[in-house]
Amino acid sequence: MEKSLRQKRGFLFYVSIYKKILLQDLKSKMSFRADFIISTFGMVLTNLSGFVTFMILFHNFPSINGWDYHHMLFLYGFSLIALTPVQCFFDNNWNLRFMVRSGDFIKYCFRPINVFFYFISEVFDVKGLGQFAFGLATFIYAWAHIGIPVTAVTIAEAVLFLITASLFMIALMNFAAATCFWIINSGYVMVIMFRFKDFAKYPASIFNGVFRFIFTFLIPIAFVAYYPSLVFVTPDNVPLLSWLSPLIGALFFWLSYKFWMLGVRKYDFTGS
């Protein structure tokens, strides 16, 4: 009996559960329509502000470190798309510290499904979709202007690298959120990590020495856009790190998941 139950909990089991939870979340969101409209407007405004900053920068400086306008636009679009999943699917991480502090978090531990999955699936952030549309438009525009060939291979590569690039930011936010299991009021860790993402849209070649290392391996924002983009932008000269980025992304995500779950186990033991 127990074995058959466990077998059922494969990928499809989780997909069907996710659909159910998502639907409930959307229903409750739609009942606060004004909030939805204002939040979406705010999100569009942040993207617009980022774009205006970008345009002002290029109004004064024609290129950055050998990257011209369209190549920078490509990086920018790439980073916006890669930063969408963390916004849409992993937004509940921002609530983690309140849940843990108030003790409400315990409810997630009593369900016969994965705690991380259950907690994360509870919130789907619709306003991230505006960013996705904005990013996709920028990405396609830059793609066409650089003249990257449109073949089945390049499109498949784009999908693969965008998805794996998104894992880096997700992992960073998982790490930042999970610190609340150990540190009271750890909101600032998340705020700081979230701020670093603004630099994902610049080529990491501008850093050297220690900071190149930090932004590649410790706070891996260079993987959010720069390394994966090189596959498309300089197809003749792709560094090894670019090809490895899907693997490294998976590793980072797995580590952040383990760290998060370590926090949950520590939380369990405190009892109360």
Partner: peptide, 8 residues
């Protein structure tokens, strides 16, 4: 809509 107002 606190988040929305604040981000704007």
């Amino acid at each position: 809509s606190t988040w929305g107002i604040n981000i704007v």
